[in-house]
Nucleic acid binder design. Structure first.
Lengths: 111, 111
DNA sequence: TTGTCGTACTACGCCTGCCGTAGTACGGTA
DNA sequence: TACCGTACTACGGCAGGCGTAGTACGACAA
C-alpha cells in the first residue's frame, strides 16, 4: 500500500501518462490506476477530480461528453498538445528526482 | 533544478539515509545534500530544521551538543535504532513508489 | 410509477509539508 | 565594542491529497 505523501507531486504525471495512450473518463482512470498498481495505490475520487480540473485549467487536458451505457453521460479527457509537451517535461523531472533520491538511499554518489 | 513538490515526501528518507553513515549537524547536512545532488536540490533552512525536529519527535533521531570551531556549539543528529528501522521501511516505500510511477511513465505493466 | 442501485460528479474544509521572510543568539576577530 | 559568520527559531502562506458528505441522472425491477 502506497501512501499519499509518497505519490504527491507525481499524480499529474501519472494522469498525463495514462491519457497519452487514449482518452478516458474519471471512473476508468481510477480503475486503471488501481489495476496497474495491483491495488497498491487507490486514488481518491476527490484527488482525481481535483487533479483533472487542475490539468484542464492549465490547458494540458481538454474534455468532451460521450454517452455512458448506464447513467449520466461521461466526460472524457484527452491530452492537448501542451499536455503532451508537459508530459515530456514531467517525465524528465521524474527521472531527475528518481536519480536524486536513489543517490541518497542507495548510498551512491551523484551521477 | 528539482522542485520542492517532486521531493516532498522523500526528505525524511534522504535525511535518514545521510545520517545512517555518520552523525551530522544541520549546516553540514545541507551542504551534503547540495553537494551530492550537484546543486540540483538545495534544501531550505526551514525545511531542514522542521524535518529534523519532526524526525526527532518521532524518536527516529537523537541529538547531542558539540563545540563548533566558530560560533555557537552545534547540535549533532544521529539515527536511533528506531530511526534505522524506519530507514529500512522508507527505503522499501520508496522502491514501491518508484516502481509504480515507472510503470505509468514508461508505459509498462505493473510487475 | 416508484423505488433502488450504480455511475458520475461537486462542495467544503482539514492536515501536512515545504517555503518565504523574518528575527534571535552566540563566539571569534579586529 | 562593534561587526560578521554560523546556528538556529518563529510565524504565516500556499498547495496538494484526503475525509466526509451530498447531488444528479438513468436503467431496471416490481
Amino acid at each position: 500500500m502506497i501512501g499519499a505523501d509518497a505519490i504527491r507531486g507525481h499524480i499529474d504525471l501519472i494522469l498525463l501518462a495514462i491519457l497519452e495512450t487514449q482518452p478516458s473518463y474519471a471512473y476508468e482512470i481510477s480503475k486503471t490506476i488501481t489495476g496497474r498498481s495491483r491495488g497498491e495505490y487507490v486514488i481518491k475520487q476527490t484527488t482525481l477530480y481535483t487533479a483533472v480540473k487542475r490539468l484542464q485549467s492549465q490547458g494540458l487536458l481538454d474534455s468532451y461528453e460521450d454517452a455512458s451505457p448506464s447513467g449520466k453521460p461521461r466526460t472524457y479527457y484527452r491530452l492537448t498538445p501542451d499536455g503532451l509537451d508537459q508530459l515530456g517535461v514531467k517525465r524528465e523531472e521524474w527521472r531527475s528526482t528518481r536519480a536524486l533520491v536513489d543517490h541518497f538511499t542507495e548510498g551512491k554518489d551523484a551521477s
